[in-house]
């Protein structure tokens, strides 16, 4: 199978995600906005903010992945691109994975890169661990996007499927959220938590594309 349809789907998804929503600004704005609301809600006591900060960032990351994924496959179903892939015998699972990866690049990775800034606003100490934190958010975000992609593919034919995606994907986010926040806290588990996070992300990368492909075949019927 030639890699051509995969690459073109990847490029198209990248440009769509980039142009369609003011580039990376939209998810970044959402991420920052959601995180910034929290101190307004719970108060600004520094010790408390330091304690809840990493958790808030995980929640914001999960939410922004859900928001950006709502339309990832819907346009392919509506404009017939999906039918073309299927007729051409293109590897749908690889295409779905490429598109999801493109969305993570434009919406997930920028959030991870910005996490040190938000962490500082949440009173974290400026240190190298903020950078490892960004790595952990990036890794966890990848799993969020792939499981969210399964929800998006399953509800590709459902109008206003955003809430449905959230309900489907949230239980699948649990391991990532747990391993991720454990990795952020570091000390208690040493190296185990980041490794578990990496393993569960790999599991998502391996399993989710097939589920997305099965769901997209269904959407095309």
């Amino acid at each position: 199978m030639s890699p051509k349809p995969i690459l073109s789907a990847f490029r198209q998804a990248l440009s769509e995600a980039w142009a369609g929503g003011a580039g990376a600004l939209l998810p970044l704005g959402f991420f920052a906005g959601a995180a910034v609301l929290v101190p307004l809600g719970i108060g600004t006591e520094p010790g408390m903010l330091r304690a809840v900060g990493p958790g808030i960032l995980w929640v914001s990351l999960a939410l922004s992945s859900l928001v950006t994924l709502e339309r990832i496959f819907q346009s392919d179903v509506e404009d017939g691109t999906l039918d073309l892939w299927l007729q051409a015998g293109a590897p749908v699972s690889a295409i779905a994975a490429a598109k999801t990866f493109a969305h993570w690049l434009t919406a997930g990775l920028p959030l991870a890169l910005m996490s040190p800034v938000l962490a500082l606003m949440f009173q974290a100490e400026a240190s190298l661990s903020l950078l490892t934190g960004a790595l952990i958010y990036g890794l966890g975000g990848l799993a969020f996007f792939f499981w969210g992609g399964v929800g998006a593919a399953l509800s590709a034919t459902v109008r206003r499927g955003g809430l449905l995606i959230a309900l489907i994907a949230l239980p699948l986010y649990v391991p990532t959220a747990i391993f991720g926040s454990m990795a952020m806290r570091g000390a208690a588990f040493g190296d185990t938590a980041p490794l578990l996070l990496a393993a569960s992300t790999l599991f998502a990368l391996a399993a989710a594309p097939f589920a997305m492909a099965a769901a997209l075949r269904l959407a095309a019927d």
Partner: peptide, 10 residues
Amino acid sequence: RAGAILAMVG
């Protein structure tokens, strides 16, 4: 079909 896929993923 959708239900079956989701139940298996779950």
